[in-house]
Design a binder for these strands. Structure first.
Lengths: 241, 241
DNA sequence: ATGCATCCGTGTGGTAGCGCACATAAGCAA
DNA sequence: TTGCTTATGTGCGCTACCACACGGATGCAT
């Protein structure tokens, strides 16, 4: 039972003015985004930008010794490819599909040209960039000061916010890679959350049972990021109007 | 012996086309930036943007419990006020003068108007934004994986790169606040570096004696950030041409 | 049902950094 | 000098997390 895909499931596309949307629409290509697919290796130049619909893309920085950490996630609220717009053609980061699903992609140059027209589309994407920056900054602080359990809560909340349901397909091993901690650390934290009845998981399948409880257990970082996204990107639905 | 101040000591201003520079020049106001001055409290709307010349501004995130961490620094290579340009009027961060000196400021609205013309000035500032994003991302990773000593090296290098000499006025207590670690941790790390002959410090005055040695001791994060700034913002001196 | 890869749980020992408490030291003021 | 403030050094117990090792469990394929 795959849900029907539509570009408007992506909030950025949905927020475009009708005239902008209609112009871009023919360039959008629906793509499947399987778990683990690397959309952009460190230092690569992105050929396409991606608008996830029901998938999540993780922005990872990988270090020389192989250690990694996620610095932000992109779901149906956003776009992968901000560096293209900012004029630095590459980033030192890697983009990986963290939660399988679909998205629309578009040749990077086309969106860049639209962006350079400095209209509402540019303003929208710049506001998204600001929200992304906030997420990265908060991740930096969170990495410094919060426990694995708190960070796991934040991460779960950010993830399910970007999907329709309350379930994730994601092994603890992968989560550990995202958070930049050991797998055992995730096991322990997840076990604690399950014991509290906040989540249920088994073999790579996670259900959030008590969203509010998770928010309580989480550090403030989740709320800060969420509030900033809501503030900067209210759902104003350019097409519907 | 204060050095003579000129807007062109700031690399962004220096990189403007002459026509843009001439138009902005009358709006630039030289300001002194004393140590510890808070230019922007969390959630504030910036009235001015700042172009440091021989000062450094630190972007700090402060948490509910008072713990803090620096997510990026802005010196003569950059500008404080990127969120203004991106259209989110405020940020959840705080901006503090980390190294006393001077800078030029300008009413935020004026620069925002210039930015919205979508010319070379906008492209320059967007490239700077990309560099800033890289710095924040690398900070997030560094917070996760590297020792206090490595981070101190990175921090010292990033700082002296943004000043003319090889000296800093900065107590260990303040550095600890920036890095989000204990003061004693900085004492220990700084002691080790001094023992190796890489730095000399006493009561809030730090000299870098062996830059190369510091780079060796530092984590890769410094080089990644530096390379990305050099790549995105080559010194191309719009005025001179 | 049997085999097998994957995923998860757990234990043991080691370490970096924390919180706290104080001891020294360097500058400054009268 | 004396005294005061600020800056830096050090020791101690504690905790979160790490690295490694291995045992157990689950689901899938044949």
């Amino acid at each position: 039972m795959e849900p029907i895909q539509s570009p408007q499931q992506n909030h950025l596309l949905d927020a475009l003015l009708k005239v902008d949307y209609d112009r871009l629409f023919p360039n959008l290509e629906l793509v499947e985004l399987p778990l683990g697919k690397v959309l952009c290796e460190s230092g690569d130049q992105l050929k396409h930008v991606y608008f996830p619909t029901n998938s999540i893309i993780s922005l990872l920085y990988v270090m020389e010794d192989g250690a990694s950490a996620e610095i932000a996630v992109v779901g149906n609220e956003g776009i992968l490819g901000v560096p293209i717009l900012l004029g630095g053609d590459s980033t030192p980061g890697r983009a990986v599909v963290q939660s399988a699903g679909h998205g629309y992609r578009m040749k990077a140059q086309i969106l860049k040209n639209e962006f350079n027209q400095a209209g509402p589309l540019q303003r929208l994407l710049l506001r998204y960039t600001q929200a992304l920056i906030t997420q990265m900054a908060q991740t930096a602080v969170c990495n410094r000061h919060h426990t694995v359990e708190q960070q796991l809560c934040r991460w779960l909340l950010l993830s399910i916010d970007r999907l329709s349901g309350n379930e994730l397909n994601m092994t603890q091993e992968l989560i550990a890679n995202m958070l930049g901690v050991r797998r055992e650390g995730v096991t322990e934290a997840a076990g604690a959350l399950q014991h509290l009845g906040l989540i249920h998981y088994s073999r790579g399948h996670i259900q959030v049972l008590d969203r509010e409880g998770l928010e309580t257990k989480s550090c403030e970082c989740y709320k800060v990021v969420k509030n900033e996204f809501d503030r900067l990107l209210p759902a104003f639905h350019g097409i519907a109007s």
